[in-house]
Every structure is written in C-alpha cells, then in structure tokens.
Amino acid sequence: MSTLNMLQAINATLRAELARDERVMVLGQDVGRLGGVFRATDGLLDEFGADRVVDMPLAEAAIVGASIGLAASGLVPVAELQFLGFSHQAFHQIGAQLARMRYRSQGRFPMPVVLRAPFGGGVRTPELHSEALEAQFVQSPGLAVVTPATPADAKGLLQTAVRSSDPVLFCEPLRGYRLVTGEVPDEDCPIPFGRSRVAREGDDVTIVAWSAAVQVAEKAADVLAEEGISVMVLDLRTLVPLDETGLIEAVAATGRCVVVHEAPLSAGFGAEVVATVNDGAFWSLEAPVARVAAPDTPYPPGRIEDLFVPTVARVVAAVRATVKAG
C-alpha cells in the first residue's frame, strides 16, 4: 500500500499502463511537456517519448475523432479532455461516433478508448471549467461513464478502463485531485465496472453519491452521527453500467434514501437513481427519496459557487428531513 492523492494515483496508473502495453498512448492538450494542467500526465513524455505521449492541437473533436481512428488502427488511446466542461466541443464525436462505432461496425471496430476529464466545482475556476455534465453522457449507449471518488478507485477503475475494449468516459473530481488522499494498493487491482462501493456502513438512511459528492456525504454522515443518525454512504463508482442490485440492496437495508450530485436537479443522474429505487425497493421505503443537487441554473462564477454546489449542511438537512418523514 502507498498513500497517494487522486492525481498521484492517476499518474502512476497511466505510467504503469503505458509500460504494460505498448499499444497504449496518451494524448490531449498540454499533456506532454507540461504534464497536463493538473500534472496528471507529469513525467510521461520523458519516459515514453513523443510518439506515445502526444500534445494535440486545441481541438476537442479532433482529439476524440482521432482517438476513434487510432483505436480502429489497433492502438489504445487514453485521451485527456482538459475539462469536462469543454466536452461539448467534442460531443458529436463521443455520443454519435465513439460510443456506437462497435455497434455501427457490428463488432468489427471495438473502441478501446478512454476519455479522461476533470470536472466538478468548488475550486473557483473560470466559467465552463466546473460543470458536472456526466448525466449528458449517460444517454450515449455503448459508453461507460465512470466516476471514481477515491485514489484507490481511481487506480482500479482506470486500469479497467484502459484494458476495456469499450469506450469509457472517466470523470475525475478536480476538487479532490490533491485534497483526497488514501491508501492505494501497489499491485494490480482492476475494479470491475458496475460494482458500487459501500463507503460507510449505516442503518438509518442511505446516501447515494459518486465522485466528489461522496466526500460531502461522508462529512454529512459524521455530523449526523453526532445526532445519533446512522448513515450508510453508497458510492456508485460507475453510472454506466449501473449497479442496480447494489443500489437496491443498499436502499432496502435502511428504507430511506437521499441522492447527492453536483449537476442541476432536473434530469440529473439522481433522477435515474430515484426511478431505479422506485422500481426495485419501493416496498422497502419508509419515506420519499430525496435529492440534493444544484439548482437548474447556469454554473455560477466562483464567488457564489458554494451556494450552487451541494454542501454538507444541505445534505445534513435533507437527511434529517428524510429520517423524520414517514
């Protein structure tokens, strides 16, 4: 075991995957000499050379489109989108192209492509750098949407992503890049997609979250524990594929559920969680499922983003209300 932060875990995993399989390459804006704007690819250019760690023109659609062609040629591109907020410049290459190339070609061209993209708020970025757009990609059949919350999961899920023959959108919580540290196994530890993780055991209520919202939920659970409310925190880890069984069991175990996410409320992935709980755990519920999300407003400038992104206080209040209800 080593104690690493998210960035260190991601960097070490990329290095190991580049060393493991020479078909793997890293490409994106500023990923070479600079090592990425967050340094996730630091040192990789020197170690693996400019053929395998490639600085690309500032053109998101070309980065994703070229990755499709690279994969068709037999390589395994791991592309960085500098921020998920800029993914719309490549949206047509992701949903309409990358995600469905295997289907379109009836299996001839699997797409072993990883798109890494930092996202999420709380670090006072300029406009369009913080948006939690993950739900927008859930309606791109063929694409896995992966949202690790811890360094160990970042490693294990990234290993699985790089080794998968299907495309993966790998959403990295930029707020947690350096803040979130944890024990990471030194050995190979690929984590299968579609397996949620109980981040914290509890009996009274289940908070469902992913990515940076998991830490918010855990802090809320600490506060609530002092009030005698025992909170289970379920980290979905991957939105596509969704661990339906794990979700339903976790909610059925407590009979109460609060979903937390950074994206705006309407049609956020929380809505899918609620519908899935309704489908599979309705008769176990003792209270309506609550959602704590951002309002349906544009992501605001930094000075008011703490009013927008779900806070510990809002989660605590929602859990209290859910526990009292019913």
């Binding site: 659609a61 070309a62 994703v64 489109g65 070229a66 990755s67 499709i68 062609g69 690279l70 994969a71 068709a72 040629s73 037999g74 390589l75 591109p77 047509h92 290459q93 309409a96 192209q97 190339m101 289907y103 379109r104 070609s105 009836q106 299996g107 001839r108 061209f109």
Partner: peptide, 29 residues
C-alpha cells in the same frame, strides 16, 4: 455495417465530416 475482416473500410458515415478526424487518427495509427 459489418465489413468483413481484411476489407479496409470504416463504416458509412451519416454524421457529415465526423469521418474526417477519424480518418486522420486511423492514418496516424
């Protein structure tokens, strides 16, 4: 959509121009 193995073509493209960066990536790879 299935081009037999050994037939060097990508599938037909309906989303116009999307094939162009893909072709660049293919040539590069």
């Amino acid at each position: 959509g299935l081009a037999p193995e050994g037939v060097n073509v990508l599938p037909i493209q309906i989303g116009l121009a999307a094939q162009l960066p893909q072709a660049v990536g293919l040539a590069w790879g």
